[in-house]
Simulated assay, not measured.
Amino acid sequence: MTGTPDAIDPDATIELLQELVRIESPYFEEDEIVAFVYNWLAEAGLEPEYHPVSEPELTGYEGNNVLARLEGTDPDAPTLLVNAHVDTVEIVDGWDEDPLSGRLEDGRCYGQGACDMKGGLAAAMVAVRALADADLRGDVLFTAVVDEEGPYGLGTNQLLRDGVVGDCDAAIVTEPGPVLAQSDLENPALLLGARGRFLYDIGVRGRAAHGSKPHEGTNAVVDAGRLAAALAEMDVGTHPKLGAGSVCPLSIEGGGETLSVPDACRLLVDRHVVPGEGPDDVLEDAERVADGLGLDSAVEIGFREAPASDVYYGPYLTDADHPLVGSLEAGAESVTGTSPAIGYFSSVGDFNYLGHRAGLPTVILGPDGENVHGAGEFVYADEVVDVARILVAAASDYLG
């Protein structure tokens, strides 16, 4: 049956998943998989287009997203964005098999990026192909984006910069949900929000002296360590649905002379935030902690350099009563026979850009797995099929 969940062919979907997994595609090196996705969509008659992504100042990155739009019959009906990223982390050490094997065993498909997020990408691709045969009132915009795993989420950032999603009314991101949720969940599950994130970039300036007479200098490394410990214990915001924020010192770099008191140190600190904690608040919190320590070193607190001042991961929430959520709940129950669990994401991703910066009601729906970003990563193959079918059912309901 065309244009319905039954149009999703399990064998073809899993075969596509394996093909995607077998393409090495770490962030900034996505050309091969981008071409594959483009050609697959073209062969399906979906008339895809490349969308250039450029960030010359900090990364020198040049690449392409892939876009495909299904036009509905009613210009006043909503437009649904379906977003998936094509990149993965770098292949990690520790694999005892080919990390790009796409091997199937006991319902699991193995490979780096299988769960994050070649599974969600495959589900989105076959769902959009099936929806092309549906009689929809509203549009579907599919965006296969680059660099989600990189430092800035350049692919989805470019969508916002260029106004590509400006006519969208809601979004589904097919990231793996339960494995990265705030609480223990099983699929089917809908994640309706996420905390945000800032990365403190802190400079600590002391005074050099001979290492045999440390009292004559001011040790920037020691003061940076004190500051890192204090930041890790500082009060952070809480939210009834997203939980508590968090602080995690990531690195301290300084010194290195064989017999000198270090006079400079750089400290990087992760800060996950909840609604109500914006950039100014986050800076003021850290400055208050530093001032309270009375360090002899000078401290300069800022954020990691970014392509623009608005390129950061803000927190967001989607109303559980939004029509898209209702459509996804109905779709999940019709496909799986189970009402979906409701949860929230523990970290950040492109969904933050869509939910926070673009202000779109954004829901995460994706197949589950384990060992995300690690050796032995896998995705549950049957959940890839389920997610595709839920997408078709929900989009058909939401778009009419």
Results as ranks from 00 to 15, higher is better:
residue 259 L to R: 15
residue 195 R to A: 13
residue 44 A to D: 13
residue 187 N to P: 14
residue 235 D to E: 12
residue 188 P to E: 05
residue 152 Y to F: 14
residue 4 T to R: 07
residue 248 C to A: 10
residue 349 G to Y: 08
residue 391 L to G: 01
residue 156 T to D: 01
residue 48 P to S: 05
residue 116 D to A: 03
residue 119 G to C: 07
residue 83 N to Q: 06
residue 283 L to E: 05
residue 188 P to N: 12
residue 296 D to Q: 12
residue 231 L to H: 03
residue 135 D to P: 11
residue 276 G to W: 06
residue 353 Y to P: 02
residue 190 L to S: 10
residue 156 T to Q: 01
residue 153 G to P: 00
residue 305 E to C: 02
residue 15 E to A: 12
residue 235 D to R: 02
residue 38 Y to W: 08
residue 372 V to G: 11
residue 56 P to F: 09
residue 289 V to P: 04
residue 231 L to F: 06
residue 130 A to T: 00
residue 23 I to Y: 10
residue 364 I to V: 13
residue 341 A to L: 12
residue 137 R to V: 02
residue 303 F to C: 03
residue 112 Q to I: 15
residue 226 R to L: 14
residue 170 A to N: 13
residue 189 A to D: 00
residue 287 E to A: 13
residue 295 L to Q: 14
residue 206 G to F: 03
residue 162 D to F: 12
residue 194 A to S: 12
residue 397 D to W: 09
residue 3 G to V: 07
residue 195 R to F: 08
residue 303 F to M: 02
residue 2 T to A: 11
residue 162 D to H: 11
residue 148 E to K: 15
residue 251 S to L: 08
residue 80 L to P: 06
residue 62 E to W: 11
residue 100 L to N: 15
residue 326 G to Q: 10
residue 171 A to F: 05
residue 75 P to F: 08
residue 228 A to E: 01
